[in-house]
Design a protein around this nucleic acid. Sequence first.
DNA 1: TGAAACAATGATAATGGTTATCATTATCGC
DNA 2: GCGATAATGATAACCATTATCATTGTTTCA
Lengths: 140, 140
Amino acid sequence: MLSRYVLDKLENLSYKITPQRKAILQVLEENQGDHLSAEQIFLSVKKRMPNVGIATVYRTLDALANLGVLHKTSFDEGLFRYEFCEDDRHHHHHLVCVTCGNITEIEEDLLYQLERKVEDQGFKVIDHSLVIYGICQGCQ
Amino acid sequence: MLSRYVLDKLENLSYKITPQRKAILQVLEENQGDHLSAEQIFLSVKKRMPNVGIATVYRTLDALANLGVLHKTSFDEGLFRYEFCEDDRHHHHHLVCVTCGNITEIEEDLLYQLERKVEDQGFKVIDHSLVIYGICQGCQ
DNA sequence: TGAAACAATGATAATGGTTATCATTATCGC
DNA sequence: GCGATAATGATAACCATTATCATTGTTTCA
Ligand SMILES: [Mn+2]
Ligand SMILES: [Mn+2]
Ligand SMILES: [Zn+2]
Ligand SMILES: [Zn+2]
């Protein structure tokens, strides 16, 4: 039950715990490892809560992303995808298959040297986004 | 005159050399080092060619990106930015200042280990996109 | 308890970058 | 120059996201 920690975080920041927000978190929780779009989340939430509005989904996802609970990532498809953040800093990277569109993950970070070099140039690093495009094993 | 090489490339692939395409290439050439949006390119071209259509700009940029002449990059601003490709593979990375929006470059690649690891997992790497977000020296 | 005060929601319009459509025009091999 | 065909420009359409606003739910505190 990951969302308990998230609900506490929301409560501490005086966000209201609404049925809509709980449902959105539950969908994300039930699809851990996936990279869901707002539309996909909206459709899943709708099954249990037919009257939910898509604006609420967008608002909630945005709030959760700003709180650092979710990662909002673009794979240049013209939309954003969302997933839980495992920890605050140095999240994993993504492999996107240009043939089938599948998105997988690499756990290794391995950007230390690069970031050290950047910091040496006087740039204060906050976050990074690395997407590797290629062809997955199944598509070769 | 970098665009001479590009014009030859276009000609060899039986693209027609039109005044619009020449003007678009010229704008990109005159702004090397910048990361221009389609809108910015459109406005610059318009100064010399007031009747140019924005659809032509988009079509040309898309064609040039597909030919590997331009890089089409997203910095998650809700639009794409374009710049000349210096070589086919292993282009530079970008630093985006979250305060002033300035985009600078790092020439070092330093993703060899990471890509080797990925290839070992059976993923055939074609391209990658690394954007580092942070605060630039001037904004600290 | 009972009102403000405030936060969240849902419906829907608006936004804005990009793409599709289509009639017109320009290019280039002959 | 001619003609096949590619390219262009105007404009409508697309579509993910955001803004607006009236309504509903929740908290505060007299
Ligand atoms: Mn992921
Ligand atoms: Mn660049
Ligand atoms: Zn694949
Ligand atoms: Zn800055």
